[in-house]
Design a protein around this nucleic acid. Structure first.
Lengths: 250, 250
DNA sequence: ATTGATATTGCTGTATGCAGCTTACGGAAA
DNA sequence: TTTCCGTAAGCTGCATACAGCAATATCAAT
């Protein structure tokens, strides 16, 4: 009975392979896909801060045992997304506002460094991608498609990442992007129109800088928009509680 | 028989609790101590690049099962110290010189940020610690006590860490310290006297800056010495192979 | 003697059982 | 009605058994 244990769970609605259906190679590290999926759920606030992630539950959903799930959760814990408590569960961290400000301040400086530490040149392909992105961004103003907003931002981040020559800096920039995504995401839902405008402006500025082939300019555009978001979040949060930790739903 | 399984292995020479013997609280996350121990062994080149870390071996040595060991190794892998290959083993990464240069360049910039992102004030206690450190550093010139050198540097790093107000920056600064420690450590063994002199100079400069209560000055001292080390490593490595990956022992 | 396929060994990746910890619920006493 | 305590349930942390993969050794064929 316990043989052929590979994916004995719910195969039909496996959320990892929905749509893409990658070949996965041989056994391409089972947990990495699950990791990205769970991280995205946290960033998109489908798992709001304070909610409990149960290992058996996730294991059943993804059709694997607890072991790869634990791997995922431990990685998420080391990156600061969740916190595992013995006997209780693995709890999605609520973002402390002060910690977020620290991260944003650091991100500002890191953004400046993009143009300083061996930046990669802006290629035409990048420009074309950015153009397509801008087009898509202009189209979502009417209908509040938060998922599409998220995807566009993902790709923007992906393009920027390609311009970062310093490997360490690239990794950092990505990591903090995901770490702060939640806070910013919450703001987006609160003020949709403004955020779409801001996104279009950002993409437009980026496009201009990239067409000029000036990676340093790209870096400063990023810096300035991060600064804008930081101020926005500061104003947004100061009205409500400083900490959104209590936003659990259980 | 399998009951009372808590630490049934080699209790006598448990390398984690040698010396310190912390109370450990209730069951304070078994793997964290093992993590630090293994990381230190990698940094001190007791596990040279290319050497294979076997899970059962480590499990036996620390008196636990493979599960916590795997936890440790996965964390080390995510930080770039090792690389797990299915069917082969977990291999200590050899430091790619280019990657190291990227990290050092980034560290230079991060060091500057120490003084800019809400630095903590230099307290008298810090100065006194630093004085003691300088005293110890002056005493090791005669006998080549590499371990003591390492401990002194650890504590220097610990003091600097306390001056970093930005939580995210503090974490980063620590992480990259350990990540680059190996390269630098190798240089130390090659040119002992010079390195002791450099360390004394660094501690002295730090002490002066701290006595002045100027955290920004501390930051710049750190930056400059990192720059010095970077140039040194560049010169040292350029003579030999650019990559020390092949330095395995199997 | 050399080369090719094959068996064997040892490792990591995964699944699962057990123990301890935490919390919640329910009943008894004040 | 309220408070307190004991018990039960559920979760994570750890141990262990199993399956798959990679490398090496072995043996046969040329």
């Amino acid at each position: 009975m316990p043989r052929s244990n590979r994916r004995t769970g719910a195969d039909g609605d496996d959320p990892v392979n929905k749509g893409t259906r990658e070949p996965w190679g041989p056994t391409k590290r089972l947990s990495s896909s699950i990791y990205e999926e769970v991280r995205e759920r946290i960033c998109l606030m489908r798992y709001p801060p304070g909610s409990v992630l149960r290992e058996v539950e996730l294991a059943g959903e993804f059709g694997v045992s607890r072991t790869p799930i634990r791997q995922v959760l431990q990685k998420l814990e080391s990156e600061g997304f969740v916190e595992a408590k013995n006997g209780v569960g693995t709890i999605v961290t609520g973002f402390d506002f002060l910690a977020m400000r620290d991260i944003y301040e650091l991100r500002l400086k890191l953004a400046e460094l993009i143009g300083q530490l061996s930046p990669n040149p802006c290629l035409d392909s990048h420009c074309r991608q950015m153009e397509a992105l801008l087009e898509r961004a202009r189209r979502i103003r009417a209908k509040q498609d938060t998922e599409e907003f998220w995807r566009i931002n993902h790709e923007r981040q992906s393009i920027i990442r390609a311009l970062i020559g310093n490997v360490a800096l690239r990794e950092l920039y990505d990591r903090y992007y995901y770490l702060t995504a939640r806070v910013w995401f919450q703001v987006v839902e609160a003020m949709w129109d403004d955020q779409v405008d801001a996104l279009c402006t950002e993409l437009n500025d980026l496009l201009r800088a990239m067409r000029a082939g000036d990676t340093q300019a790209v870096a400063y555009v990023e810096r300035n928009h991060l600064s804008y978001y930081m101020a926005l979040i500061g104003r947004y949060v100061s009205g409500a509680d400083r900490s959104v930790s209590a936003m659990a739903k259980r």
